[in-house]
Design a protein around this nucleic acid. Structure first.
Lengths: 133, 133
DNA sequence: CTTGACCTTCCAGTCACTGGAAGCACTATC
DNA sequence: GATAGTGCTTCCAGTGACTGGAAGGTCAAG
């Protein structure tokens, strides 16, 4: 199977697949004409990585997950540890973003948003809390 | 004021401040010895950018916000538009992360996490929904 | 035999820094 | 005046995970 096909099936851009090969994440065969040739196993790997990436795992984490996936002897606790760590990072990011969201929403609410120059958003960014005593 | 001091006051690393100068975000004066010399206004700008960055605005958005901040004639609606757009992006990111969090939590919960090789997390990533009918 | 789609490699750019090397400038101490 | 230590300067390279584009080879259809 050619790269275009593999891209369509896995949901990954061809460019990204080439990049994954470059960094040693997958190793497709080559046809006589020099084209990459993807087997069903390669395709599974690609989909695996695609899903892991969409869950926010870094490429290096994907590499680790892949090797655990390949390893028939692995302990599921290893995987769980990795996943939990990552979940912690996701949660931390969510917390950060919620804080940002709250702060920004508050500033936006205070801003009348007409064509007067007075602007609580800029004041907030400038460190002037107009509303405070 | 030297860069070290400006860094301490603004909460930005000196390296970052130099980078901001390089991309034209701020333009500190120079002392006779070649050192950067930051005035109180420069410091305000730096703090402004620091706050905007911590709210997730990109550097280019910071540039826009700064120029609005500098512009005595700006309409607050311009600022509000920018802020709202950014808020939308934050909310979208939160949504994404919450989805990831939910999916990953579910997989983790299903995983017994002992030293047996059977692992629902990897199965999930591989596209096998073991629990499904 | 030409067109067009698909494939190849390689190089450069993205974003926002960050690390490190090499080398001045300043301050304090001996 | 020599020395040590800190802080400043510039410049170059690297990060993560792609992404865009150029230049050129390959294949199927008409």
């Amino acid at each position: 199977m050619n790269i275009g096909n593999a891209a369509a099936q896995s949901g990954l851009p061809a460019k990204t697949i080439r990049y994954y090969e470059e960094i040693g994440l997958i190793a497709p065969d080559r046809s006589l004409n020099g084209y990459r040739d993807f087997s069903v196993e390669h395709l599974h790997k690609l989909s695996f990585v695609q899903r892991a990436r969409s869950l926010g795992f870094t490429v290096e984490e994907c590499r680790a997950l892949l090797s655990l996936y390949e390893d028939r002897e692995r302990a599921s606790s290893d995987v769980k540890t990795l996943a939990k760590e990552h979940l912690g990072q996701i949660s931390a990011k969510i917390t950060d973003l919620l804080t940002m969201q709250a702060t920004l929403s508050e500033l936006i609410e205070k801003c009348h948003g007409d064509n007067r120059p007075d602007c609580p958003i800029l004041d907030g960014l400038a460190g002037k809390q107009k509303g405070k005593a």
